[in-house]
């Protein structure tokens, strides 16, 4: 005769049994590799595309474009005062703005197509773009063609 098993303990230990086999390990390793690749590719690497023009929008006025290849300082008059934007060697940045927090200045250089920064108190937003990078921004499923 076998000794009687304790039914409660048996079911508990079999309920909480987690077995992992080789296929799971392969999936886990691939997942971790994917994670590293995604972080490396999207966060720590500069995108290859080069921006070639700057779009400036002040308040509700129509956006104005400036080429990025010539060095210049833009002095823009916003709602609160003056904002100064520097353009140099394919990059652009705020170097002064008439606002309290200076988030736009601390954002630093914009160089990758699609980079955007704004001074909300002064109602000025700037974005660098590229003619060669395929731009799908004029479409979305909610508004149709903008």
């Amino acid at each position: 005769m076998k000794p009687e098993q304790k039914p409660d303990q048996q079911t508990l230990s079999s309920t909480f049994a987690l077995r992992i086999n080789g296929a799971d390990l392969v999936i886990l390793v691939l997942t971790i590799m994917l994670l590293f690749w995604v972080y490396n590719r999207l966060w720590f690497k500069q995108s290859s595309g080069k921006a070639d023009y700057l779009v400036v929008q002040i308040d509700t006025q129509a956006p104005v474009q400036y080429p990025l290849n010539q060095k210049r300082l833009l002095e823009l008059e916003g709602r609160k005062g003056k904002s100064i934007i520097e353009i140099s060697q394919g990059k652009a940045r705020f170097i002064h703005s008439a606002c309290r927090n200076q988030f736009c200045v601390f954002h630093g250089w914009l160089s990758t197509p699609g980079d955007t920064t704004a001074c909300l108190p002064n109602r000025i937003s700037i974005a660098v773009k590229s003619h060669s990078v395929k731009d799908t921004e004029h479409f979305d499923a909610l508004a149709g063609e903008r």
Binding site: V38, Y39, W43, S47, G114, D115, T136, E137, D140
Partner: peptide
């Protein structure tokens, strides 16, 4: 593809995958 076709959206992908 349909709702926010901005390349900046990809900066969120690592967070989502984590």
């Amino acid at each position: 593809y349909f709702f926010i076709p901005h390349p900046g959206l990809f900066k969120l992908l690592p967070v989502f995958i984590t």
